[in-house]
């Protein structure tokens, strides 16, 4: 499984007063199963990029290859592409529409032409993956679920298509703390079980630091950094110039360094910072 993006350009409303270059020469590739976080300010091109990757938007120029196959050529049949690449939009629970959760989750595979037995298997598996109990929720109306459960049901609808690449746009936004933790766990679990590539867009740097194996930083339609989260979040001044912040935990580490000049830490998680502080206390006693 692989994604290869070559010099992607996209211009909104070309030759119109509102002409905007949304993507300005984006190139990257992913060859390993991994979780990839995409960050960037509002308007930097993150969502536009995701929409290109499953063929919702055709680029003005440039190419995208999924598993070596070009999806941006003329008259490409995109059904196959969309089967392979699942896209979960922002606030996907707004798109729930069926009478029961089971029917809603089954909608995708049904449209792919799967048979009854296969659909049932997919629905059960997808609900299990997102941590919902089939027997409990299958016959419920999706609108009776809590906010966090609704979102998981909506994600199950995408997983039921059994994509090999999953993309999520702001999957954690607006969830309460408990549902937020559940969603972080869900993404990790899905990645491991499906051994897939997961791309996600988020404004929450804490989540990005915790989940990502690799980070793409976007600014004004370009990818300006492409590296591991440790390396990226060291570059706090550059990020700040782009209107981006470091994870709250790195912010705390910085404030401690301001007070204790010889304290150095570049943490992604609270555990890493706690360890560094303990170490520092030991050596300074």
């Amino acid at each position: 499984m692989s994604i290869e993006v070559k010099d992607l350009k996209y211009i909104y409303s070309p030759d119109m007063p509102g002409e905007t270059t949304a993507l300005d020469g984006v190139s990257f590739d992913v060859t390993e199963p991994s979780v990839i976080g995409i960050i960037g300010q509002t308007g930097s091109g993150k969502s536009t990029l995701l929409q290109h990757l499953n063929g919702l938007i055709k680029p003005t120029s440039g190419e995208i290859y999924i598993d070596g196959e070009c999806i941006t050529g003329e008259k490409k049949n995109l059904t196959d592409v969309r089967r392979k690449i699942g896209l979960v939009f922002q606030y996907p629970e707004y798109q729930l529409f069926e009478e029961t959760v089971a029917k809603d989750v089954a909608f995708g595979p049904k449209n792919l032409g799967a048979d009854e037995e296969d659909i049932d298997r997919r629905v059960r598996h997808a609900l299990e993956l997102v941590g919902l109990d089939y027997d409990e929720v299958a016959e419920m109306s999706p609108f009776e679920l809590s906010g966090g459960m609704k979102r998981r049901a909506a994600i199950a609808g995408v997983l039921a298509m059994e994509p090999s690449i999953l993309m999520l746009d702001e999957p954690m936004a607006g969830l309460d703390p408990q549902a937020h933790r559940d969603m972080l766990g869900l993404i990790k679990r899905v990645q491991q079980e499906m051994n897939s590539i997961i791309l996600f867009v988020s404004h929450n740097m804490g989540d990005v630091a915790e989940l990502s194996d690799r980070l793409l930083v976007m600014n004004k339609g370009r990818i300006v950094m492409d590296d591991g989260p440790h390396e990226i979040f060291k570059r706090r001044d550059e990020l700040s110039d782009m209107g981006l912040s470091v994870p709250p935990i790195a912010e705390i580490a910085q404030k401690i360094s301001d007070k204790h000049k010889d304290f150095e830490s570049n943490p992604l998680t609270i555990g890493e910072l706690a360890d560094d502080i303990k170490e520092y206390r030991k050596t300074n006693r």
Partner: peptide, 15 residues
Amino acid sequence: AGLELPTVIELRDML
């Protein structure tokens, strides 16, 4: 209550 601790508090308690 299904809440979480602010990061500073969590760190304080870990230490």
